[in-house]
Amino acid sequence: MPDGAMPVLEVRGLKTVFHTRGGSVHAVNDVSFHLMPGELLGVVGESGSGKSVTMMSLIGLLPSPPADVQSGQVLLGGQDLLKATPEELRKVRGARIGFVFQDPMTSLNPVFTVGSQIMAPLRKHMGLSKAQAEARAVELLELVGIPDARRRLKSYPHQFSGGMRQRVMIAIALACDPEVLIADEPTTALDVTIQAQILELVKELRQKLGMAIVWITHDLGVVAEIADRVMVMYGGQVVEQAPVKELFRNPRHPYTRALLKTIPKLGGQRGERLQVIEGQPPILGFPPTACPFRARCAHAFARCEAENPARRPVDGLPLSQGHDVACHWSPEGAEDPSQEAAHA
């Protein structure tokens, strides 16, 4: 990635709150990240950490009410999507940002043919005629590896297997050649061999098309395999962000460290217990005033209760290559809180 290149997508200080009958849920708190052209950003974090809500906030996909994207900026090529009119947003959705969702079994409309579902965005955004859209749809299905594409256009979603449906979803998301593809756990609902195939497909498509990708997953193994950079989320916040090798080599946040320990190691001792992270995920009923991870953190000290840690650079490298963490503690023998306090 060339130095000084502009990010395709830059998110600053994003905050999303759900106003529900049971009170507010502060699902996304001050999330900032960027995405360079052609880059693959892996987003990891346990269930409920705000990964999906963050990504859906970007392009206004959350139902409002209850969702309320309170503040922040989402810059796509200089345009702030949070200030865009609904009409402008629709021109971005599907055309410049493609979305692939977790469950391919339910993400396609059961009563329309696969062809018509691929052709809809093509006709809408690119103004193609029916014949042109059809030709492009065949091309897309071939691109995502669906054999006998022309005939399959007339099939309905239920006539496809789960893996094939996810391929169709990817074809739809890529239909208008978006600059950014957001894939929200695209392989979680698939079985392992199909997961591997979809991963291969995405790697291949990335080579061919060169779009930037945000890949949400629970699976650090997947991240290690395909991501350039990783963003770790916890309790609606970004707790650590680093290039993938750096993150695996030098995890700084106690949550990231715990997460890395939960990966079962190939060739590890049999009967060795898989590490789990003890405790409950945080309740997001209030805006955070303390570190969300403190209750489960082995290194927590007084300051973690008093102050929600801001993200701070670890290595002083520029934005696109740097490593940052949101934690008061640091692994370099700083387990003595007094020393840490002095350091701050």
Binding site: A95, F99, T106, S107, P110, F112, P121
Partner: peptide, 21 residues
């Protein structure tokens, strides 16, 4: 249903989403 979110995610207008999908 999820397919409604999909329809919105490809930029369909509310009108199309509700009255068609």
């Amino acid at each position: 249903q999820d397919y409604v979110r999909t329809a919105r995610s490809v930029g369909m207008t509310e009108r199309v989403v509700v009255l068609r999908d």
